[in-house]
């Protein structure tokens, strides 16, 4: 493979990467600098993102280009603009109107997502047959016991006494095994991110640099 000298982009990215890594030693001015650039750029990015991907194609172009058919887009336009009145203290209360519509809609959608999309199918997923051969039945039993005991552990209306005490304990054990799995996966996830950065530094920046300097 032809190795080209790192371009200006790679140099900038490598510098910022090293700045961020310097936080591991201790908080320092290079880290603060890189972080400030990042914060500024990310807010700028949001503006461009919203304008290019949503506001332009979904609002301005249809509204101003085809007002006859798309006049109803005035409603979300107004509701959107009203949101910003919260920065004018005297009119801040008006912005609550569109905030109310916004929150209301998502709350309604969320209710259905949770009940129809999670609780019903997850409950159904636990209704497993217990007559499907020894090993599959055993596996099904593990799932059923796990779900039931965890739900009982999270049951607050009666104290964990009598039969509930050992049941809730089993629930905790299931939770702990699951947290263990979670931990194992978290390690993999975090290490992946490090691999990504080191691969960039080594393969996109340092390696071409070394090859360039010593003629490969």
């Amino acid at each position: 493979m032809e190795l080209q000298l790192p371009g200006i982009g790679e140099w900038v990215a490598a510098f910022l990467t090293l700045c961020a890594f310097s936080f591991l030693y201790k908080d320092n001015i290079l880290y603060r600098f890189a972080e400030s650039v990042f914060v500024g750029v990310s807010f700028g990015y949001y503006i461009g993102l919203a304008k290019i991907n949503t506001l332009e194609p979904n609002l301005f172009r249809p509204l101003f280009g085809n007002f006859g058919e798309q006049w109803s887009l005035i409603v979300p336009f107004l509701l959107g603009v009203i949101l910003y009145l919260r920065y004018i203290p005297k009119l801040a209360w008006v912005s609550n109107w569109s905030l109310a519509v916004y929150i209301g809609y998502y709350i309604g959608v969320n209710l259905l997502q949770r009940l129809q999309g999670e609780i019903l199918p997850q409950a159904k997923g636990t209704m497993l047959p217990l007559n499907v051969g020894l090993w599959p039945t055993l596996c099904n039993l593990v799932v059923i016991i796990g779900v039931v005991t965890v739900l009982i552990y999270f049951f607050f209306s009666s104290p964990h006494k009598g039969v509930l005490k050992p049941t809730a304990r089993i629930g905790i054990y299931f939770l702990m095994i699951s947290f263990g799995a979670s931990f194992g996966y978290t390690v993999m996830g975090r290490v992946s991110l490090l691999i990504g950065r080191l691969t960039f530094l080594v393969n996109d920046w340092a390696r071409p640099l070394v090859h360039g300097a010593f003629g490969g």
Binding site: A123, T126, M127, L128, P129, L130, V147, V148, I152
Partner: peptide, 8 residues
């Protein structure tokens, strides 16, 4: 919980 037990 009741639904799950009946379902099983």
């Amino acid at each position: 919980l009741a639904a799950i037990v009946i379902g099983v």
